[in-house]
Amino acid sequence: MAINWFKKIVKDYPKFWETYLSCFNENQSKEQRYVVFDCETTGLDYKSDRILSIGAVGIQNNQIIVGDFMEVFLQQDVFNPETVTLHGILREGKEEKVVEAEAIIRFLDFIKNATLVGHHVDFDIEMINQALDRLDVGKLQNQAMDTDVMYQKLKYLPQEQQSSLDELCDIYKIKKSDRHTASGDAFITALLFLKLKRKLEI
């Protein structure tokens, strides 16, 4: 049970959060699962900007499981017209949209205790954590791996030297056909992750 002994009151968390937390108590007998995900956002400020869409896909046994997939588009209260040109998600787009809470619940239900993978994943995790905060629950508990950090390790690059997803795609000859949709980026990142994972012999 996830009980914080230092908190005076044991908070009564909503059901979805309990379910999420309970995932981490299961014995990890199964094959390690990774979830590669990407958030499209209204901007790069995690305080004021909001998530537009989340795309995520599962990896198990070094294989991208195409059926193990989620994609969700969020209804927007905060809307930044400047970034529309970049990601192409309009406030009144065609996609079915859900409220932020619903999106986050679906996301938690999808990732369970998987190791999260992303390119510059800290930002995406922080965006999710901000949303979780608005739901008044804790932060993500999952382990996380960053494809850029993996690349730095592989090439012995200093931490400051960051590479964009585009750059790495060019280096590893991954077709960038669906860049800048959440699920497209997730898939590309997944391919990149498989390559780097193999090279680092993780």
Binding site: N62, I64, I65, V66, G67, A190, L191, K195, R198
Partner: peptide, 14 residues
């Protein structure tokens, strides 16, 4: 069919 398939990466000589 595509929804059920899996994507594998093979390194050279794997």
């Amino acid at each position: 069919i595509a929804k059920t398939c899996q994507v594998i990466y093979l390194e050279k000589n794997q």
